[in-house]
């Protein structure tokens, strides 16, 4: 029981949501993220995303946690769970490093 509780708390603390003010679009086969309005001051540049990165990004408008994202990747790609978890982790870390998570 105790263990389950701790897990739950950890997950809860790790809810992820993207900051608003970005537009994610496919341009000539390449996924790009452009800042809009006030965000331009903070993020002066255009980010590019891989196809799986774009899939994750587009599902992070509302709150999710890493497990939701792992499930999403597993449902879309033929990939083992460990790799999916690793990829999601890497993506989330890079979002956090770039200050894109609320």
């Amino acid at each position: 029981m105790v263990l389950i509780k701790v897990d739950y708390k950890e997950k809860d603390a790790d809810r992820l949501k993207l900051k608003n003010g970005f537009l994610c679009r496919e341009v000539a086969g390449q996924w790009v993220v452009v800042p809009l309005g006030e965000r331009v001051v903070e993020f002066n540049g255009i980010m590019t995303l891989s196809e799986s990165g774009a899939l994750l990004w587009r599902n992070m408008d509302s709150e999710v946690d890493e497990e939701d994202l792992v499930k999403l990747v597993l449902s879309e790609y033929i990939i083992d769970e460990d790799t999916a978890r690793e990829d999601v982790r890497e993506f989330v870390v890079s979002l956090k490093e770039n200050g894109l998570i609320e």
Binding site: V27, A28, V32, I46, T48
Partner: peptide, 28 residues
Amino acid sequence: SCAQILPRCFLPYYDLEIMDKCLKTLGE
């Protein structure tokens, strides 16, 4: 090329719908 060309364009950062329109044109 996309990642390098978009920053060279005068993009409408002030409005989502207009940006969308502009990116569609550039994509084509």
